[in-house]
């Protein structure tokens, strides 16, 4: 628990103040905040048009504020443990990755966050992309192995 220790040594108020003000893990994208203002001011027809556009451009991965090239947090919309845990596992396999973890900050929000910290030489975004591709490769292998095993089973069962 280096984390708890680290905070205990901070002045107590400073630590808690910053935590209360800045916790950004699942705040709405700024564009959406603008949207609600627009809707209040504009007439209804225009607001409806905006809504349709918003729907089409829904962004499923977002970089959270406070990220740097080698240490970033990503927010995935409409993803869950299904992707999160497997992705975390495969990203951790990358030797250029120092740290990777995932969390679902709140059970009633369909959001999944992934934190990636890499060593010098690669970026968190590259590590994420590589993780996605590696997981795809793993799926390919398991899929092929399953079909192969199924055919082998059918052959032995019929003979």
């Amino acid at each position: 628990m280096p984390r708890a220790k680290a905070r205990k040594e901070e002045p107590a108020e400073a630590g808690s103040d910053i935590v209360m003000d800045e916790a950004p893990t699942s705040h709405q994208p700024e564009s959406r905040d603008d949207m609600s203002v627009d809707q209040d001011e504009d007439d209804e027809v225009e607001a409806e048009d905006d809504e349709v556009e918003e729907e089409e451009e829904v962004q499923r991965v977002r970089l959270l504020p406070g990220s740097t090239p080698t240490a970033a947090s990503f927010e995935f919309l409409n993803e869950s443990h299904t992707l999160g845990n497997a992705l975390r596992y495969i990203i951790m396999k990358n030797p250029d990755v120092e740290f990777c973890a995932y969390a679902i900050p709140h059970p009633s929000e369909a959001k999944m966050n992934v934190r990636i910290q890499t060593f010098e030489g690669t970026t968190a975004i590259q590590a994420l992309e590589k993780g996605l591709r590696d997981l795809q490769d793993l799926c390919d292998v398991v899929s092929d192995k399953f079909i192969e095993a199924r055919e082998k089973f059918a052959a032995t069962a019929s003979s």
């Binding site: 280096p2 984390r3 040594e9 406070g66």
Partner: peptide
């Protein structure tokens, strides 16, 4: 120790998540 730059970030607080 407490010298980590992450100590005062929101990530520090949320780390248990």
């Amino acid at each position: 120790g407490g010298t980590t730059p992450y100590g005062t970030t929101p990530y520090g607080a949320g780390q248990s998540n």
